[in-house]
Each structure stands twice: as structure tokens, then as C-alpha cells.
């Protein structure tokens, strides 16, 4: 079990090292892992064993979060190939992509003036989701062929799109709240 602390998240969850993950399988495996290291089991254990159990719990939680997250999973895959970076310092200069992002923001700002803002937001959310799928495909292609710069650029765009999707969905939720 101690070995688990130095293994990678994919191996820990017994899934292939790939961007495509079966989220049900991940969730299932998470429950098993959690049971194995549950602090209750270590109530009478030495303080060292309890400390290790806590380290495992936090590792498992971190692994779950990373494997489920569309952007962090990609960043983690890059990390396994020694490409380590903080998103805070990243920038993208792809003018066509940024123009689209800007137009999307403009549309989002004016969405409340539409006849049916919720329908509009639904369709925007679906568009962004499909862009995210395309970007994930681009990431997988670049990652598989070791074009790590391209893979990194795809991660930047995935992050952009994921943030946009969250904003769209949050606005839709708050408009729904107002209607009720």
C-alpha cells in the first residue's frame, strides 16, 4: 500500500493512461480505495499507520479530482511526460480562437436582452461543449504523437472553453432562479 503513494493516478485507479476515462469505473474504484484506507480501520493503529492512512486518503481524493476534471486530467497527462506548468502563467495567441471567444463573451453579455435567454444559453452551452470535445480530440492526437507543444496549446484552449462553459451554465442557473 505504501507504494501507492509514489504511483501515478491512472495506475492507482487501475485504468489505462489515457485522456479517455470511464468515469463510472473511476467512481467505483474510488469507493473501493476509500474503504481500504478509511480512518476508522486505523482507530487502534499506531500514529504512523494513521498518518499513512491519512496521506492515502488525501492522495485518493486528489487523484479522483484530477481524473474527473477535463482540464486537470490533460495537465496531469502532460506532467507524466515531464511537461509541468501553472495555468496562471500561460497565454494563447491564436487570433482566430480568441476572436471566437470574444464574440462568445459579447453574446453572453447581451443574452438577457434575447426573447428566450435560457434557450440561447442552452445552445451556447452545447456549442462550447462540442468545441471542448474537438479540443480534447486535438489534445489526444497531439499527446499520442508526442507533439507536446501542440498538446499544451490544446490544454490552454480546453481551460478557456471549460471556464466559458461554467460561466454560461452559472448564468443560466441564476436566470432560472429569478424566474422561480
Amino acid at each position: 500500500m505504501t507504494d501507492a503513494l509514489s504511483t501515478n493516478y491512472f495506475k492507482l485507479f487501475e485504468i489505462p493512461v489515457s485522456y479517455d476515462v470511464d468515469l463510472d469505473q473511476v467512481q467505483h474504484r474510488y469507493r473501493d480505495l476509500q474503504k481500504a484506507v478509511h480512518p476508522d480501520k486505523y482507530a487502534n493503529a499506531s500514529s504512523q499507520e494513521r498518518r499513512i492512512s491519512m496521506q492515502h486518503t488525501s492522495l485518493i481524493n486528489q487523484a479522483l479530482h484530477t481524473l474527473k476534471h477535463p482540464v486537470e486530467r490533460a495537465m496531469y497527462l502532460l506532467q507524466l511526460k515531464d511537461v509541468v506548468f501553472t495555468m496562471d502563467n500561460e497565454t494563447t495567441m491564436d487570433a482566430a480562437f480568441l476572436m471566437e471567444q470574444m464574440e462568445m463573451r459579447e453574446k453572453l453579455e447581451a443574452v438577457r436582452e434575447q426573447n428566450d435567454p435560457l434557450a440561447e444559453l442552452d445552445s451556447m452551452s452545447a456549442d462550447v461543449k462540442s468545441n471542448m470535445n474537438n479540443m480534447a480530440d486535438e489534445f489526444k492526437r497531439a499527446y499520442a504523437s508526442d507533439d507536446l507543444d501542440d498538446a499544451r496549446e490544446a490544454v490552454r484552449k480546453l481551460q478557456f472553453l471549460n471556464k466559458a462553459k461554467n460561466e454560461i451554465d452559472e448564468l443560466a442557473a441564476s436566470i432560472e432562479d429569478e424566474i422561480i
Binding site: D88, T92, L98, Q101, R156
Partner: peptide, 15 residues
């Protein structure tokens, strides 16, 4: 001349 740059972390776009 046009310059565009975006910061993924905060979602900022600057033209």
C-alpha cells in the same frame, strides 16, 4: 496592426 492574447486561467481576452 492587430494583437490578440488570451489568459486561459482567468479567461481574459485582450485585443
Amino acid at each position: 496592426g492587430t494583437g490578440m492574447v488570451g489568459a486561459p486561467a482567468c479567461g481574459d481576452v485582450m485585443k
